[in-house]
């Protein structure tokens, strides 16, 4: 049942087996597992650092984007304001020019009217002279002739043919 020799042999056998397995099984596998764990931990740390860097970069880009959007909006607002100011300026200038053209046109019309009126009066005087001369050639003296012309001119003024504008 119990054999002392076998007991000793098995004890030595087990110790030899433990020594060898420690060298060729436990140590290499443990070392391999430790290295793999270290690698995985390193990769996880690296991934976390990269994620943190990416998050930081994303936040910076978002801030830049917001700043650029704000600047773009400001530029657009400025452009709109400048456009509106320019528009008002152009309109005012156009109005002023139109007014100047209108005033000039009125002045031209007035001058033309006065000129026409003067020509008309001169024509009427000339015509009156000729008619009077024909009708009264023989009977009227120079004084009567002058008085008739003066009467004709006054009547012409009283007839209100129009005042120069």
């Amino acid at each position: 049942m119990f054999n002392a020799t076998e007991f000793l042999q098995q004890t030595v056998n087990f110790l030899i087996l433990m020594f060898i397995l420690h060298r060729i099984l436990y140590k290499p596998v443990r070392k391999f597992l430790d290295e793999r764990t270290a690698q995985i931990e390193s990769q996880i740390r690296s991934a976390e650092e990269q994620k943190a860097a990416a998050d930081k970069m994303r936040q910076e880009l978002e801030l830049q984007l917001a700043e650029q959007s704000r600047q773009a909006k400001e530029y657009i607002d400025q452009a709109i304001r400048r456009g509106e100011a320019l528009q008002e300026e152009i309109i005012a200038k156009a109005k002023q020019e139109a007014e100047e053209i209108r005033q000039k046109a009125i002045l031209d019309i007035s001058l033309e009217k006065e000129k026409a009126w003067a020509e008309l009066k001169e024509g009427v005087v000339q015509l009156s002279f000729e008619l009077t001369e024909k009708v009264l050639r023989s009977s009227l003296d120079q004084a009567a002739h002058q008085r008739l012309i003066q009467d004709a001119l006054e009547k012409l003024d009283d007839a209100q043919l129009g005042e120069p504008v």
């Binding site: 076998e6 042999q9 087996l17 060729i24 099984l25 290499p28």
Partner: peptide, 29 residues
């Protein structure tokens, strides 16, 4: 002059299997 029982013999076989197996399977982890 030392007696070797069947138990010891099979222990050696098992030791050989474990040692060779460990050596083979841990060579290329």
């Amino acid at each position: 002059g030392m007696p070797v029982s069947d138990n010891v013999l099979w222990t050696w076989i098992i030791m050989a299997v474990l040692i060779v197996g460990s050596w083979i399977f841990t060579r290329n982890l």
